[in-house]
Amino acid sequence: MLPSDVKALLESRIEGCEFHIQGEGCNFQVVAIGDVFEGLSPVKRQQLIYGALSEEIASGELHALSLKTYTPAQWQNAPENTNA
């Protein structure tokens, strides 16, 4: 699986989010930015992403995910944001 595959899956399953994906094979780092995370705990945010990829995780297509989730306001000051 390629980062572009993971991005396409997430974009088709979670609306209104921007995704930055790195990795290869079955191990990926996901940075997700969206209003959908507003008011959600860190655990609920991760559950949203894992839930969107549950089929691929269950099948073994995806094995390890490193997740970072931000609201657009949080993203403005995030260390991963190279435009900050």
Results as ranks from 00 to 15, higher is better:
Q29W: 09
Q29C: 08
V31E: 03
V31T: 14
A32E: 05
A32R: 06
A32L: 11
I33Q: 01
I33M: 03
I33A: 04
G34V: 11
D35I: 04
V36N: 04
V36G: 01
F37N: 02
F37S: 00
F37T: 02
E38I: 13
E38A: 15
E38R: 12
E38C: 11
G39L: 09
L40D: 05
S41L: 14
P42E: 14
V43E: 09
V43M: 14
K44V: 03
R45H: 09
R45D: 04
R45L: 02
Q46S: 12
Q46W: 02
Q47T: 08
L48S: 04
L48P: 02
L48A: 05
L48N: 00
I49V: 15
Y50E: 07
G51K: 06
A52T: 03
L53V: 09
L53S: 06
S54H: 11
E55V: 06
E55K: 13
E55M: 08
E55Q: 14
E56F: 00
I57T: 08
I57W: 01
A58C: 01
A58P: 01
A58R: 11
S59K: 09
S59V: 02
G60Q: 01
L62Y: 03
L62A: 00
L62V: 08
H63Q: 09
H63W: 05
A64G: 06
A64L: 08
A64V: 08
L65K: 00
L65Y: 00
